[in-house]
Design a protein around this nucleic acid. Sequence first.
DNA 1: CGAGTCGAGGCTCAGCTCTG
DNA 2: CAGAGCTGAGCCTCGACTCG
Length: 448
Amino acid sequence: MVNSKDFAFKVNKQTPTEGVLPPAYGTVIDCRPASGKRGRSEKEVKSRQVRLTRVPDPDGVDCKRRKREPHDSANDDGAATASKESCVGAMSTASNSTASAERPPAVRKSQPAPTKFRRGTVLKKQVDLDSWFTILRFSDPAQLLEMRTRIASCYRFLRDNPMLWKHSRDHFYDDTLPDPPSELSEFQYAHLRHGHGCMSCHTKSTRKTYWAFLRRWCKNCLHSKIIKEHDVVGMLKEASEEHMLDLLKCLPVAIFDSWDNYVGVGPGNTHPQKNVYVLRDVEVLLAQHAQERDENPATWHAECRVWMSEKEKVMQERHDFARKMELWEDHARQSKSSDFQEKKTARKKYFQEKAAELTPPISEKELQLCPSYRRAVVIPKMPNMLSWSQLKPKVEKEAADVRARCTTPDARRLPDPFGLGRDRVPHHLPFFSQPSSRTTTPSTDPFF
DNA sequence: CGAGTCGAGGCTCAGCTCTG
DNA sequence: CAGAGCTGAGCCTCGACTCG
């Protein structure tokens, strides 16, 4: 920020982006005291935004340091314009400088200030739907889901624009997420990925989605709904012994381990893993099978195979998708975990370096004894000056406490802080140096 | 200049997942 | 199957910023 007599000139954040950059601008904030004529005649002195001009500095003299010409002072109202023109003039070539000098100063219409959002204040100007579409295309799918479920006015818009979800998904996950199967809408897909809560008993904390079943259930609900393969075979045999094996292929299947934990999408053949189905899926399939058979008894024998192959195709698509999704989740989990580990390591290293620079320095072993440090290094975020400034006073206090404890006459009765044994205290630490056998009183030196 | 707002980061805890 | 580790939600504090 540059202060120039009654004006504060703030350079707004210019985030670098791809492609052609928008013209840089700053905000001129009018700080003149509302006195004299201005204070009475003008209702409101508005701050304004102006474009910034890149000024080459061949002579090492920039616009701000330019000597003020006598005619400048004569025209105080046009000071800003004149100054701006001189900057532009410095950038212009010789050929166009004359032309630009002759041209009357262009009156640039100041941009309206961006709308400020205030809690409890309804915006007067509505944002049009095209703008919303563009904004939401680049939003986090989890955020879209939140908006669709919580904001009534967004519900229809998000419901009627499936491409919005797809673009948001592709953009946010960089095209790495598998496309949903045909039986799943984009919203349902997002709901399974980002939603929380059991879809049966509505337990809030459930997060695990069983992609083989396209459902998110808590463990209790999952176990109450599943049925083992030999029971399914019995049910199918009872309905249609002839088509039993084909019907089995029309059902979503998952693999469970010997402790009844979900392993992944099925079918699996390795012992002791077992194939598990959802009872409701079996019941629905059998009901549909019976209905189709009863509606067309004459042609059913011929149509049965077509009907089942359609079902099988859908199920195959689901299983392929579920496998891809589980692989993706595995990969995402691993990369997230290694990313967190890197951040924690960086945090540890940064805090240790900063602690070593203190007076007196705090060593790594001392840090390990500070609860605040131990808590701080498990937070999976990159360290910065702010996080260190928050940790520093706590660590200094705790390290001082540790030192005080270790030097009191009772210290020998306290648990060994390093677990190294009383005679093996780290001698490199100044405050752990062994007291002389002749001195029995604690040292009066604050740094021991 | 004080009150209000907002976002970032710290911290805790319950529930979930992983591993042996 | 149990325990360790991870994760996200919720709450809190603090500093930056805005408004009246």
